[in-house]
Design a protein around this nucleic acid. Structure first.
Lengths: 232, 232
DNA sequence: AGATTTTTGGACACACTTGTCCAAAAGGTC
DNA sequence: GACCTTTTGGACAAGTGTGTCCAAAAATCT
């Protein structure tokens, strides 16, 4: 009985099939991200997945095919995590600075600096120019929407009197960029920042973001007395 | 007569030699950056350089050797351009916002978004994790020093009453990060932003930077009347 | 248990790449 | 022109990678 290959959570019958498939994609994600497309051989993937080489050809037919499957998988998971994280944007926080720092932290933790985010970023940097259509989906469905969504949240905070923001999407991009300021060097060289580094990066980013976009009238009488920043 | 290979600008005799060498490194830089180390073959480089394959082996002996030469070359040129650009940091500008925007623009134009910067970034992203020692020099001699230098300039502007900055190096990182906010998507996918895009990115970045670190007392009486940002 | 499907390992052809060797050609120097 | 160096092209061996074929083994379904 031939089973459809795209049924992800088939009940019992194709359990083994999906397990093999998943172990293959997982191994391929790791290897492609670490070594790049050209430097990763099918045998390396088969080895890491604990699977015969032929099984990979049975499932994916082709190295290129496996690669696009990996990219699609990574894109879906990455975007899903992104929107889940955005859903936790602070609504009407008691402490705006702390709430935004928490949000920035979880954005780093769950999206930019987790395994999927790192892998996807490296694949995009390595192959994005040669195969732009491969990542067109990611671009429009991921960051494009994220900027709008976060921008909308900022606009809401503006409307509620917490912030003063003219261009919400720009503010969203700058918020993320500031969060990246302290960790870009780590991620660029292939590493992942520690949780403490991400915490500090989030705090530094939000302090500057609020200095630029915050309304100073409410609780902070003297804008001069900003707390001393933590060296990164 | 055996000529030393490291004399870059030897007078007349080895003119041809250096021309060959340079055309090889130039071609290798292009190919390695575009295709990655593994996917670039010596024949492709020889072809692009208009040189026999054997000549490459005569000069560099090894593919790996050629690669480190490329990285070193790129690092040197990139860092030199970086410091040259930093030397143009505004001293006592009549219009601080315009001056900083010009500086951010030339930083993008001459460092982050030129050919060398793009090539180096891709090589680091692709091979930085596997060969960290290859890029250790770049990291300490390039961005590490740049942050300190730019930070010192910011500190001077603070001291002169133009800005209010607690952590100069952090401000430098955030300044660069803000400049990247609008162009990171373009560069990530392998492209280079247009000059107009870089101008707008610089203006957006500096507007937010000054909103966070600028002294509002001087000329701007009402901080509410920020000019409308330009959509990117 | 019997039937069906998937998986496995190994052999295979084919193409590509690296790095070497070498003799002929081209180029510059005195 | 004679001398020396570099360059060239081509042949070559060794290794590696891709993708296919196939029969035996294992797993799964009924």
């Amino acid at each position: 009985m031939k089973m459809p290959r795209n049924a992800r959570a088939a009940p019992g019958s194709s359990y083994g099939q999906c397990a093999k498939r998943d172990s293959i994609t997982e191994a391929a994600e790791e290897m492609f991200a670490r070594e790049g497309f050209a430097a990763t051989s099918i045998d390396m993937i088969a080895n890491r997945a604990g699977v015969s080489r032929q099984t990979i050809y049975n499932h994916y037919g082709d190295k290129a095919n496996l690669f696009v499957a990996v990219v699609r998988d990574l894109t879906e998971r990455s975007n899903a995590g992104l929107f889940e994280t955005i859903a936790g944007f602070p609504e009407a926080p008691a402490d705006l600075e702390a709430a935004l720092a928490d949000f920035a932290y979880s954005l780093m933790r769950n999206c930019m600096c987790n395994r999927d985010g790192k892998a996807l970023r490296r694949l995009i940097e390595a192959e994005g120019e040669r195969y732009p259509e491969l990542f067109a989906d990611w671009r429009t469905q991921g960051p494009g929407k994220a900027w709008d969504l976060i921008g909308a949240r900022f606009a809401a905070l503006d409307h509620a009197g917490w912030l003063r923001i003219d261009d919400p999407a720009l503010a969203a991009r700058q918020f993320i960029a500031l969060a990246n300021a302290d960790i870009q060097m780590v991620t660029l060289l292939g590493g992942l920042p520690t949780e403490a580094e991400m915490r500090r990066a989030a705090e530094n980013a939000v302090r500057t973001f609020l200095a630029a976009f915050g309304r100073r009238s409410a609780a902070h009488e003297q804008p001069l007395a900003r707390s001393a920043p933590v060296a990164a």
